[in-house]
């Protein structure tokens, strides 16, 4: 079903069309990466992002280029971005774990209970968009089965329908959860080597915590120049907007 989705979305892309110049840029970036010119590869990939086009492959390769250029924060940002669109991208997960080894700050989170772990694993299998697609597809399937059952009097289809209905409810809960989460908090990666978080959005207030590049934080609030962030362990502070890159 996922394949179907991707095939359809590829068709969609062809229908709307990415500019051939951008495809050329992408190819150029890939080539310069394999030739060891990581700086140029980063430039080309970032340029495509500026033109409002993205893809998990692009983010993954951008992350690799940043990693080779020893820019930890950039690589973490790109891998995380890749995983937002394509949460089950195995290579991106692996490379992200490598990049995270270089992050100075390590915030230990308590281990989740096993059922929550399972739930999160399932939830992270698809992105929210794909979950919504899956929801609609199974809704469509149910309707199709119902129509067949009612018009052709095939009563044995009823049990299959019930299974799909249970699945549909589960997916609906997942979508709801993911949707609420994506609405309530956006995330970001610390981009400057050392960042001091203040208690208020100005430099005169007291310093709360010092964080280092590559750390993933929640963004609670946005101001013109300042960002209110929450560390994974719950600490809240304000930092300059230029010091963070939003996911």
């Amino acid at each position: 079903m996922v394949k179907k989705i991707s095939i359809i979305s590829i068709l969609f892309c062809f229908a709307f069309g990415i500019h051939p110049q951008l495809i050329e840029k992408y190819q150029n970036g890939i080539d310069s990466y394999s030739n060891g010119n990581y700086q140029l590869a980063i430039q080309e990939f970032e340029d495509i992002l500026k033109h409002d086009w993205e893809s998990p492959e692009l983010y993954y390769n951008l992350g690799n280029a940043y990693y080779r250029q020893k820019l930890v924060s950039g690589s973490i940002w790109a891998y995380e971005k890749c995983l937002v669109i394509f949460p089950s991208h195995k290579d991106a997960q692996y490379n992200l774990s490598l990049a995270n080894l270089n992050v100075v700050d390590k915030i230990d989170l308590p281990d989740l209970p096993i059922y929550l772990k399972w739930y999160e694993t399932i939830r992270n299998y698809f992105s929210l968009q794909n979950w919504i697609k899956l929801f609609v597809m199974s809704l469509f399937l149910i309707m199709l089965l119902m129509t067949i059952r009612k018009t052709l009097y095939q009563n044995w289809l009823k049990s299959i329908e019930n299974i799909i209905i249970i699945e549909l409810i589960f997916i609906a809960l997942l979508c709801g959860h993911s949707f609420l989460e994506s609405k309530s908090n956006s995330e970001g990666i610390i981009y400057s080597p050392v960042v001091i978080a203040y208690s208020e959005p100005n430099e005169y207030s007291s310093k709360i915590v010092e964080v280092h590049e590559g750390l993933k934080v929640n963004i609670l609030d946005n101001n013109e120049d300042w960002v209110n962030l929450e560390l994974l362990d719950g600490t809240i502070g304000w930092i300059l907007k230029s010091q963070i890159r939003e996911l």
Partner: peptide, 12 residues
């Protein structure tokens, strides 16, 4: 790290 992904990207 693992090597770059050179498959045809899904642009969006």
């Amino acid at each position: 790290i693992r090597y770059s992904d050179e498959s045809e990207p899904n642009w969006r």
